[in-house]
Design a protein around this nucleic acid. Sequence first.
RNA 1: GCGGGUGUGGCGGAAUGGUAGACGCCGGGGACUUAAAAUCCCCUGAGCCUUGCUCGUGCGGGUUCGAGUCCCGCCACCCGCACCA
Length: 840
Amino acid sequence: MHGGAMSDRHFDPAAAEARWQRAWDEAGCFAADRHGDRPKAYVLEMFPYPSGRIHMGHVRNYTMGDVLARYKRMTGHAVLHPMGWDAFGMPAENAAMEKGVHPGAWTRDNIATMRAQLKRIGFALDWSREFATCDPGYYGHEQALFLDLYEAGLVYRRESEVNWDPVDRTVLANEQVIDGRGWRSGALVERRKLDQWFLKITAFADALLDGLGTLDTWPDKVRLMQENWIGRSTGLQFRFRLSDGGSVEVYSTRPDTIFGASFVAVAPDHPLARAAAETDVEAAAFVEQCRKGGTTAAELETAEKRGLRIGVMAAHPFTGAQLPVYIANFVLMDYGTGAIMGVPGHDQRDFEFASTCGLPILRVVAPSVHEADAPLAEADTADGVLVNSDFLDGMRVAEAIAAVVARAEAEGWGEGKTVWRLRDWGVSRQRYWGTPIPFIHCEACGVVPVPREQLPVVLPEDVDFATPGNPLERHPTWKHVPCPRCGRAARRETDTLDTFVDSSWYFLRFASQPADRPFDPAEIARWLPVDQYIGGVEHAILHLLYARFWTRALAHVGRIALEEPFASLFTQGMVTHETYSLGDGSWLSPGEVRRDGADWVRIADGAPVTAGRVVKMSKSKKNVVDPDAIIDRFGADAVRWFMLSDSPPERDLPWSEAGIEGCARFVHRLWRLFGQRDPQAAGVNRALDRRVHQTVAGVAQDIEGLQFNKAVAKLYSLAGEIERAPPSASRSEAIRTLLLLVSPMMPHLAEEAWAGIGEAGLIAEASWPQVDPDLLVEDEVTVAVQVKGKLRDTLTVARGTDGAQLEALALASANVQRAMAGAPVRKVIVVPDRLVNIVT
RNA sequence: GCGGGUGUGGCGGAAUGGUAGACGCCGGGGACUUAAAAUCCCCUGAGCCUUGCUCGUGCGGGUUCGAGUCCCGCCACCCGCACCA
């Protein structure tokens, strides 16, 4: 029975991996242009930042994409599955400061390391299209595209706040601000205004919002998050007359609650606040205090709500009541007009503020007109009817909003307005390791674009990181250039672009890489949009929104004809691991501990270790495992299999030693099974044939739906089924089919076995098995029998047995009769082929 | 604070409103072996008066012949919040 030559050999993952990776390379199987005539499939995973080494999160991400890419190839597609590097960014500069290495050298070393790691895992990538965003051959084109947007009026400059470290005299990223202090200096961070470059993403707010409607294969949660982020709202913008003769413009999405207004508040940056600060020392001190601390929304919104009353009063547009005006730290200058009317009864922030300041809290919306004076323990934001509101009384909220807007417009003190939460995208970074912004500042001519023939503006290599701040700014010669317009001495822009710009069009560059242009429009037409994009949910808003914006902006300037870059999106979960700590709270890595009965101890000295929560793998908690070390021990196929097993791909995947051992066992178990294929065996096993065809169809469906854990479960099942089956022609064919089905997941084992059973050619180029639809259905079914909804028996009957017969069979069951205890039948529900429910 | 998500055995999870726990891991028992590893077979939600019954999908309600699945209200944890990528 065990005739194959393979069964005498053990499967040696290291040898097989090297052999077949070389074979794929030599055959050029994964070059995208290999099958020009086939329908296209562009499979893309978010490209990595070259941080040093590949981590398990990358392996999971790229394994999913790889399985899909290999499957698509087997089902007759021309597949574009590329890889590159998101190579600009802060960590390279940090490394330069800490270790004295050049950011470029550090980055290129990391890329070399990580490329080698990815190759070891056997991904079916078209490496001929690889690039890094820090290549001048990439970022030079980005500069040209930036100039396109500039010419189209989508780029502008304005003042904007940054986190300023007053000791290091440096702009800090949000993550470099810890508890309001600079991470290196420990100085209290301030907000400081700088002239910065902006992209007019708000010009596309409507289009980006509407476009979400076409992305029906994106996860609902991502579309919802983007929708909320764009934050379209309609409301009333209107003016309060001030007691000093001036006025203040406010915006409210709930103008219906206007009769509940008990104060007016402006942002600390609001002109009114600045004016007050000039004349009033107290106001100046308060505004100054508000400038302390970081710039993040979370920080601003969780800060205690504080305000300072200034000398003017605002007149209520309907009642004429004099409302106090405050400068308040919870009012944002970036949203609406930077000023609000405070309605404590129906806005939680206003409620908290009014409570601490002793301002009146009025109810103007109630569940019914009879509850007009129900007390408010907190802000009531529910729908209801207007009360205590003059001409609005009795209206529903929506009706009242329309009424107030109409009245304001008629009387000329306000107008209905659509406001977006989305703000323009600030792309200036006061850093070295990024794409130089291609502009020159001339005292006579102003801001002048670098002429296109002078692109790329290349970063200087000779920079020093001995002191904080932007090395481009203090470089002795780089920024000194003649003005392209008048020829007089001028200086280069020293800000570089946000790295999100780099990742906003890389998927276009993968489709073609001409030297003289960013991309070839014909190749964009051929490959785009990306058919399946896969990455972490942490990119659900920013990266994906920016990439959608760039695509539309490039279409707007005529570079491409494409609205949405990613036809389908999948967001995968994180790889997690148990954490280990000593009594003093210090973390230990998985390699430093071992199990000792029910407990954990440190290997070095037997010290007791606490096994803690299962959390995302991170260097700081030391709960990481290195992919290379795991491949050394178990082989690439076992790691790939683990990445696909058990956890649904959108959820977190807990790494475990036991789990990877189980996967490695299964790899070898399959090898033994493949070795049992006996081409001489005769006879048909119909039941096994059915299982095989059901599995082929099911696995295909699971892979297409990216439900790899379900595909894995089906493959385990089928393997067990085949193992238990006696030899037959059906069984031999089943083994060959199983090999094809596992090949996208365990490509090295599959190639080795494919060759072992004497098949010609590479399994990487084989076709997905055909399904016989007649074999998909069983002819017997198991029907559940319930009494009053509780399972009492099951029946095995021919598929399609009619209802009356099922009912009779059910009533004849002894278990059913006992459960009924003589009660009369009131109703019988029959679901053919599934269930009979007898209600008594 | 705001926005989004998740919750089912010891663990990861499966289940078009229709047999909860497929498949895998761990654990237990057995076979093979001088022995071990490897491999193979069986058992494995809890409880009980064990031909079978009761309970059970984070918690509390509801809809339904029937709810893990639908609705309402909570709790816990995770992700994002515009200069981390």
